Amino acid sequence: MKKRAMKKYIPKNTDYCYSIIGGSTDGKRLVIKPCKNRIYRGVKVYKGVYNGESYVERIPTYKCRYTGISNVNDACFYDRCKCCGVGDNML
């Protein structure tokens, strides 16, 4: 897909990779519409030892098709912050 076509799926007037559509009926969750360029890539497994105890941590990985950035490389993208700068909220 070309960048021009991908650009139209990026949410406008927000700093995040999703648009807020509304709230749930109980008021505890937001209903969001995610960016179509943020795609799931799989699970990355980290193993290690901490204070003599071994642990296994599974982290889901995502990638932005528009910029090519992965949440493994960028912590802001892990929190669903927009890293492309398209349609940012200008205050």
Rank of each mutant, 00 (worst) to 15 (best):
C84A: 01
T25I: 08
Y9C: 02
R29G: 06
G42V: 03
K3Y: 01
E53L: 07
S54D: 15
K82P: 02
P34L: 10
N89K: 01
E57M: 14
N37I: 03
M6Q: 11
K33H: 13
C35I: 04
C64S: 11
N73G: 04
K12V: 02
V31P: 06
G87V: 00
C35W: 13
I21L: 14
S19G: 09
S70F: 04
R80C: 05
D26E: 13
R29S: 15
K47R: 15
Y46C: 07
M90T: 00
I69G: 04
S54H: 13
T67N: 04
R41I: 05
G48M: 08
G52K: 09
C83M: 04
N71F: 06
T67F: 02
Y50D: 14
N51D: 12
C83R: 05
C64H: 06
G52C: 08
L91C: 00
L30S: 13
C17R: 10
T14C: 04
C81V: 01
K44V: 12
I20W: 07
V31L: 15
Y16L: 12
I32A: 10
G87Y: 02
F77K: 04
Y66C: 01
K82C: 08
F77Q: 06
Y18L: 06
V56F: 08
G87W: 02
N13P: 01
L91E: 04
Y78V: 01
F77W: 10
K3C: 00
I39Q: 15
Y78D: 15
M6N: 02
S70A: 08
V86D: 03
N51G: 03
C64W: 07
Y18W: 12
V31S: 11
G85E: 02
S19L: 08
Y78Q: 11
K2R: 01
K28V: 03
K28S: 14
V72E: 15
Y55A: 09
D79W: 11
S24R: 07
N71R: 08
L30E: 15
R38K: 14
K2P: 03
I32W: 13
I32V: 15
S70H: 09
G48S: 08
G23H: 13
G22E: 10
E53Q: 13
V45C: 11
K47Q: 15
K44P: 04
R38V: 14
Y40Q: 12
C76N: 13
V31W: 13
S70D: 12
N73M: 08
G42Y: 11
